[in-house]
Write a protein that binds this DNA or RNA. Structure first.
Lengths: 194, 194
DNA sequence: TTTTCAGCATAACAACTGTTGTGATACAAT
DNA sequence: ATTGTATCACAACAGTTGTTATGCTGAAAA
């Protein structure tokens, strides 16, 4: 097993501890125990805890971007945007853990300016991705041409974020069909004046 | 100064520490220092830290409900719903701290089942409030009568949540006008088929 | 075969945590 | 005058934290 793969293993153990016990209780020792080894492993693959924390956060966003790319692969038009957004949502139960970790990290970032800036950077990348998508749709005359694309990208992220947060609080709040319905209805809003 | 007022003072100091240093670093000692006193004060007004934490969270929701009641006072129709939602949003900079504390608490609740259930209860109260509002509007034929009101209430909360979260990450993400525009546009969605 | 070193275990370190108990002070009731 | 009590300061407690240093082990390189 390679060095990078082992790092990922450590971060995955970190995620599990975060979900089960909370981010502030995800100590080196707890992570090592979850990993079935000693803290020596953790300290060997990460200089200190901040580096581990930051890496674990990066991996969350990384997974999000990977999933989005995969979901839009070969898709076109409005449906492509729809799939992009749906790929980020917890349509099935297996999508919830990722959101739990993300919510934990966001809360953890409050009062930690470096982490807030990290979130800002990732959000901006996401916004750019969606903005490009919207621009393509606009060029193809598939959505209105009087839209503020930056605002609309932010609004779409807010929609996904709001649903994801809601599911974290109560997994039964939105069914998969309801999530799809809300995304589709929002997108319709971008197509025609109403 | 009364007992209850002093308790509030302690929780407000707690909020300030949370915003400045993070929820997990809001220790008894840090809170006492922010309050300009010793830890004796904190332990005197709260049995233990869990009680303080829970009370501080309750106060966040309490303030939200208070603001909503005040904003809807004397308002009617669609505008009443609009004001209700806008009262929860960080239209001005002074609305951001409340959202920061709330986001910190939500993240802190991950891996802490009792806190998650607390969030669920408050969310359900909020949903009921909005549901009642939607029912009134439906009875007055001001919104469509084929709506799933529970879903729509959840969707409105998700909208507000998504915007609030976005502002926490980047205060410049949504201007006050943009927030109002998004809320109004979402509400329009409920009025007529499109 | 010897050397080197990555991979990991273990232990010790100071710093910090929530909790608890003791006591001081001041004001109210008796 | 004295008792009682609410408010708070302070110190000590055991437990947990991240960090660091040291040592072991096996496999690859010399």
């Amino acid at each position: 097993m390679s060095y990078d793969e082992r790092r990922i293993e450590v971060t995955e153990a970190t995620w599990r501890v975060i979900i089960r016990e909370g981010l502030d209780r995800a100590s080196m020792r707890a992570i090592a125990q979850e990993l079935g080894s000693s803290t020596g492993v953790v300290t060997h693959y990460f200089r200190n805890k901040d580096e581990l924390t930051l890496f674990a956060l990066e991996q969350v966003f990384g997974k999000l971007f990977t999933d989005m790319k995969a979901a839009t692969q070969g898709q076109q038009g409005i449906y492509r945007l729809e799939q992009m957004l749906l790929s980020a949502l917890p349509l099935e139960a297996n999508g919830i853990p990722g959101w739990q970790v993300w919510v934990a990290f966001l809360g953890y970032a409050i009062g930690r300016e470096p982490l807030i800036q990290e979130h800002q950077k990732r959000y901006d990348s996401l916004r750019q991705l969606i903005c490009q998508e919207l621009a393509d749709l606009q060029a193809a005359k598939l959505i209105r041409n009087d839209l503020d694309l930056t605002l609309e990208a932010h609004a779409l992220i807010a929609l996904v974020d709001g649903i994801g947060t809601g599911v974290v609080i109560n997994p039964k709040q939105f069914s998969a069909e309801q999530q799809r319905y809300l995304v589709q209805r929002h997108i319709k809003t971008l197509v025609t004046e109403f």
